[in-house]
Amino acid sequence: MEPRRDTDDALVDLVDVLLRDGAVLQADVIISVADVPLLGVKLRAALAGIETMAEYGMFVEWDERIRERALADGEDATALEGERNGEGRRS
């Protein structure tokens, strides 16, 4: 039996590593015409899962805000479901 590389899982493995570990892409680009620099661009991007980003202190406030909103929406949905079942809130 010959060893073979299974390419079907390559994309899944790549996405898994990116979400778990993350990657930082950094690029410096200078656009010039006739050796005269006209435009400089400095790019930096971080790509990772939200849990990995939060571990490094990125998007922490955003994550907390989204989670609070989801909890509030869940409570509103539970109250609405109770009203549909005839269990309206009593004051």
Rank of each mutant, 00 (worst) to 15 (best):
V12F: 15
V33S: 08
E55Y: 11
A54N: 07
A72Q: 06
L38K: 03
L71A: 15
A54Y: 11
G22F: 06
L18E: 03
A70E: 13
R5G: 12
D35H: 06
V24F: 01
D16R: 12
D21L: 05
D73N: 08
D13N: 13
V33P: 11
L39C: 07
L43F: 02
D73T: 12
V24Q: 05
R5V: 12
E68R: 12
L39V: 04
D13I: 09
V41C: 01
G57H: 03
E75H: 07
E75C: 03
L25K: 00
E55C: 07
D28A: 14
T7K: 15
R44T: 01
G57K: 00
R4T: 10
I30R: 07
I31C: 03
A70G: 09
L11T: 15
D8V: 06
I30W: 03
T7N: 15
E51N: 06
V41T: 00
A27W: 00
M58G: 04
E68A: 14
A23V: 05
I50L: 05
R44V: 01
D6W: 15
K42A: 06
M53N: 14
S32R: 02
A34M: 14
L47Q: 10
D76W: 12
S32H: 04
V24W: 00
A77F: 12
G22E: 02
R67T: 06
D63W: 13
A23D: 05
D35E: 08
G74Y: 02
D8I: 09
Q26R: 00
L43E: 01
D21A: 05
R20W: 09
P3A: 13
D6N: 06
L11K: 10
E64Q: 09
L43D: 02
D76E: 14
E61P: 03
L14H: 04
A48C: 07
A10S: 12
Y56R: 10
E51K: 09
R44F: 00
E68C: 08
T78H: 12
T78E: 11
Y56Q: 11
V12N: 03
S32K: 05
A45S: 11
P37Q: 02
D28W: 06
A77K: 05
G49C: 01
V17L: 15
Y56D: 15
A23E: 03
A79T: 07
A10Q: 10
L25Y: 04
E75S: 09
V12T: 11
A72S: 07
T52W: 02
A46Y: 00
A46L: 10
A27F: 02
L25G: 01
A70C: 10
